[in-house]
Design a protein around this nucleic acid. Structure first.
Lengths: 239, 239
DNA sequence: ATCTGCCTGTGATATGGGTCACAGCACGGA
DNA sequence: TCCGTGCTGTGACCCATATCACAGGCAGAT
């Protein structure tokens, strides 16, 4: 098969080595077989838009490879990035289930491989495979959970510094770096994007980073950030 | 049967007249029968706490009567009210499904009737009744949807006035009052609580209401608020 | 009728951070 | 090598809103 956008396409879910540790993908054989029959494997370049906030739901997108930026956007152009979706996540799920419009916009930030399933096929699939339906409920619970975290971070912090500290700590807890005394975080986003994640302005992010560096709390090594003083960062995060 | 806290207890879901218009409750007979077998009907006074943020999930609470305040709370005591749940809503659902801690606190603000189902019973029930499982997915989608709205409101508005205007408009669209030229909203909450809903301070809410009244945009009739100038309120909401 | 607690209303003050404006820098394309 | 484009860094300014402090009002308890 062709490898567009420099991707190694995963042909079938059955041969996918990563299936086991993905909440949705690790289905019993019969369900997986049915899923294979209705999915369309496809690849997208960096910057492609899977769906836009407000659109009627066409179906779900199972992210196999690459990262996808999920954001909402106000009428005046301001953007809030909700999260960066990682492989294994099912995108557009809640809209597809409920039939309401997509509540956010999904845009690839890497070359991505995606399995698309049309809404009517997916709904039929769910009704016929109750174990898959339960996985969907689990995925949705998960999404709801992270949404609640986001709400807490946005609504209950007094300062931008607090939100940034929270974000950095969360990032470091992703890669299993959290346990180390000096966790490292790969900064794959621009200050602008970080600002959009914590609902502040680009300049404020720049200033906050300058402050953190001055106080020796973090330290930049190229595009990697070293957290030198985890305790101080935690103190900032919970105030 | 006794009627504690002045409630007329709904004995059985089968005889409940309100069942039809509730997403979760309107189950096929076989599922409903099974549900009857595992639920515990109970009543709570005003101010009772159903569960607390951070607790391990004991099970779900189907709200039959009364209203429940759902909130999250920061370490320093600041509270953010996410929503006021109305009858028909299933509380503690996502935590019960995923097994993670309850992500928020649920506290009754009226005398309430509630059907409680233990986690293990509920999970078994879901696996045995795929139609119920699908309803759960729908409920969760709904919750996710409102969470996204909350995030938008919190993260993308520049002023407290904007958030208050949004809240008032949303309230008026609940009771079917939205269509009227001068919708009425019952103000069942204190300024303090409203402040906690839009993430601002009590004083700011008081001042904002004063401003709205001065500009003849709203008008207080006892504890009922009359929206005299819907257009102006909408203009405030989207800026 | 009085007290006590919760709610609303309003002034004074301080400040976090949004916004504008511009400068320096890195990196890729021609 | 030079240029353009997008990112980062920083100063100046100002406004919305948090916070503190207190006064009046209303309602339920004694």
């Amino acid at each position: 098969m062709l490898s567009p956008y420099g991707l190694d396409i995963i042909e079938s879910c059955f041969t996918c080595k990563l299936r086991a540790d993905r909440i949705f993908c690790d289905l019993p054989t019969s369900a997986l077989q049915a899923f294979e029959g209705i999915k369309y494997a496809s690849a997208y370049p960096k910057g492609a838009v899977l769906f836009v906030e407000g659109q009627a739901p066409r179906g779900i997108f199972v992210l196999c490879k690459g990262r996808v930026k999920l954001s909402i956007c106000s009428t005046d152009g301001k953007t809030l990035i909700l999260k960066i979706a990682e492989p294994g996540e099912v995108l557009g799920l809640s809209a597809t289930v409920s039939g309401k419009a997509y509540e956010l916009t999904a845009e690839t930030i890497d070359p991505c491989q995606v399995n698309f399933v049309k809404r009517e096929d997916f709904l039929r699939f769910l009704h016929e495979h109750s174990d898959a339906c339960f996985r969907v409920a689990e995925q949705l619970s998960d999404k709801y959970n992270t949404a609640c975290h986001e709400i807490r971070a946005l609504g209950l912090s007094h300062s931008a510094a607090e939100k940034l500290a929270k974000l950095l700590l969360e990032w470091s807890s992703r890669n299993g770096e959290a346990a180390k005394t000096e966790p490292r975080v790969k900064l794959a986003l621009t200050h602008e994007e970080i600002a959009q994640m914590i609902g502040t302005s680009r300049e404020t992010v720049t200033r906050l980073f300058a402050e953190l560096k001055k106080r020796q709390i973090v330290n930049a090594k190229g595009s990697t950030l070293v957290i030198r003083n985890k305790a101080a960062l935690k103190a900032l995060a919970s105030n």
